[in-house]
Amino acid sequence: MSGAEPVLEMRDVGVELAPLGGAARRITSDVDLALHAGRTLALVGESGCGKSVTALAAMNLLAPPLRLGTGHILLRTPGAAPRDLTRLSPAELRAARGGQLGMIFQDPMTALDPAFQVGEQIAESLRAHLGLSRRAAHDRAVELLQLVGIHEPERRVRAYPFQLSGGMRQRVMIAIAVACSPAVLIADEPTTALDVTVQAQILELLRELGARLGMATLLITHDLGVVAENADTVAVMYRGRIVERASAEALFTAPAHPYTRGLLASLPPLDGPRERLRPIPGQVPPAGVADADCPFVARCPEAMPRCLAARPALTAIAPEHEAACFLHATVAA
C-alpha cells in the first residue's frame, strides 16, 4: 500500500490445531499481511475467526497444541538482512521478540506478574535485550512510565500490579512492549477489558506512540469503531481466512464483502434515524477453515450457486481494495 517495504510480512500463514493423539485441524489459512513502519493494520473479526492465533503466529509464539502449518514471517529491520522468523533458532527468536517485536495482551492483570514491582518487570526486558545495568534499566523504566502517561513515575515504578487501576496496568504493559523501541507492535484486543473513557485514552496513547516511535502496529480487535478510529488499513477475517482487505476509508465507505457489509449493518447507529437492525442470519461458526465452498455461503444473503461449488480467492476490486467474493469477480474480470 505504501511504497516502502513492509517491516513485518506474513506470507501464506496457516495455523494448525494439533491436539495430542488427535488429527491436526487447520485454524487459519492463506493469511497474507504486511505491516509498514508508522502505520496501523487492524485485523477484525468475530470470536473464533482466527485473529488472535494470527497475532501469536506473527511473533512465532504459537504453543502446542497450536502450531504453524504453512507460511513465512519476514522481519525487515534497518541495517539487517530480512529474516524469516520461522527459521530462527530459539535464542535468535527470543532476541527478536521484545527486541524488535513488542506485544500487548487483552488482560493486563494476567499478563503482568503479580509478585514483582512494575519497574522490575520493565527493567527485566531492558536488561535482557539491551544489556543495560540495573541502575540504567531502572532510570529508563521511569522514563518509559513517563512516556506512557503515568503520573509520578518515580513513585509508580515501585508499585505492584494490584496497586494500579486497569488502565494504568495496560499503560505498564505498553511500556514493557515498547521498552526496546521495537519495529513492530502487536496489540491483541488491547482495550477490550477497559471502560470506554479509559479505552479512549489508551488508544490515543497507542496512536501517539506509533507515530513517535515509527512502529508498525498490528491491532487485533472485534470492535469496528476501534478499527475506524485507529487503523490505516484493515483486514477482515472469517473462518480463518481474510475475506476483505482495504484502506480504512474504503472499507467503511464502500464495504465489498457481504460479511463486512453485514457487520456494519449490525451496528446500532449513534446518530441519525433509529431503523431496525439488519443482522447477519445464523450463528458464528466454530474455529476452523473449509476449502470446498465460500466460507460465508451459509449466512450470505447474496449467495449464488457458484459460491457452493468453489471458494472465491482474495482479488483486487479497486486500488488498495481486495475482497474474496464472486460478486466482485465479474466486475474485475
Binding site: G166, M168, V196, T197, A200, G225, V227, A228, L270
Partner: peptide, 25 residues
C-alpha cells in the same frame, strides 16, 4: 459528554472531539 466523546465510531473521521476527562474513576 466524555462518555459520548469516548465511543469509537465506525466511521473514519479526521477530527476527534476532546475527551474532556482524565484518568479513571
Amino acid at each position: 459528554r466524555s462518555l459520548l466523546a469516548a465511543i469509537p465510531r465506525p466511521q473514519p473521521r479526521k477530527i476527534r472531539p476532546p475527551l474532556g476527562v482524565v484518568g479513571e474513576p
